[in-house]
Write a protein that binds this DNA or RNA. Sequence first.
DNA 1: ACCTGAACACCGTTCAAGT
DNA 2: ACCTGAACACCGTTCAAGT
Lengths: 214, 214
Amino acid sequence: MARSSLTREEVLAAAAGLVRQHGPPALTMRRLAAELGTAVTSIYWHVGNRESLLDALVERTVQEMGTLRPAGRTPVTRIVSVARGLRRELRARPHLIAMVHERGLTERMFLPAQQALAHEVHDAGLRGSRAADAVRAVQFHTVGFLLVERNRERSPVQSPAEGDLWSTSTAGGDPALARALARPADQERLFVTSVRALVDGLLVVGGPPGVTAE
Amino acid sequence: MARSSLTREEVLAAAAGLVRQHGPPALTMRRLAAELGTAVTSIYWHVGNRESLLDALVERTVQEMGTLRPAGRTPVTRIVSVARGLRRELRARPHLIAMVHERGLTERMFLPAQQALAHEVHDAGLRGSRAADAVRAVQFHTVGFLLVERNRERSPVQSPAEGDLWSTSTAGGDPALARALARPADQERLFVTSVRALVDGLLVVGGPPGVTAE
DNA sequence: ACCTGAACACCGTTCAAGT
DNA sequence: ACCTGAACACCGTTCAAGT
């Protein structure tokens, strides 16, 4: 079946569709060609190869992500809101984060949020390298949390499972702690709690004990 | 070349060697067979298939990792020392973390550290679900940090690079912050700083503002 | 400028056949 | 119980040839 004219846009759209519906592993050049009704080699003319096709796909999705607007009155709440916003955006694109991670583009993905964070951290009174540390700490925590979270969702059953381990109460004689660790975590609440604690720690006047401010 | 007797141990050892020397992508069934001087199909008899071969490999490497001993006087330093210890162990096995992540076994990998953390958090005075939150927050932060860090090391050049972006001083009018963000981060220092800030925030009496303790 | 089929060098896995 | 080669159904990519 001959096509009138295949465009790069069509290729990218079809590729995005495959990823959305069947996940990244479903995106093979041959399957994509079948989807488009063209020869496999036509795709190469338009997008180079699989590597750059994925690059383009990731870049496009990252640009789709809206700008992050801080909300709230205090510096802590505003910073936490940026982190939550980023988490929301990424969770809305479940395959993106793994693809971005595999392609080493987490920095790229985080840039919009980084700018917002830099502004907020400055408003909170941090300057210079301490401000940069704070920005990066929140960035690493957020992206890292998302990676672990995604991982956990993909394969929820572990061996030995957390539950098995903690039911035998090795939690320093705290049965409530053992029970809590045996239960699955409420990710959203844990995220907010941990980001808030992190930001609290970062914004302490004079810095955390033992760390010299610049 | 006929072999006297191929064992499961030999297969695992050769597989580990391939991963160590040439990275996980080099571990193909055919290459492994060539390395061992056997037919590809012999491997299947001993380890099932590629999936379970990787499982066994990960499990073995995780068990190799030593137990983590907390060091230091205060709860904060002891908790930070566990996180640092885990980071050190994992960085000594550069391919492990990616493999573990891909296989959804990050929980498994973190179990030894989790027990140590539970003990320390209890000693620091946290109880029940707040203690569980603290354990998990440190766990997520550490593993997440490592994932992002590995990712960054694998592909250090980003587009647009952090440097390019921040050289144009959009950092809320803080040139020192802009410069600091343009420079590459000192990962070890950033890790210690962020973990310490996080633990500080988690251990605050009464919990962080706005969060109700159980 | 754009599309094509054939071909190359890989994969993981199955299966019937050997000893 | 253990090993083998042949075969199947996939990959990404290149290349000469078409229009």
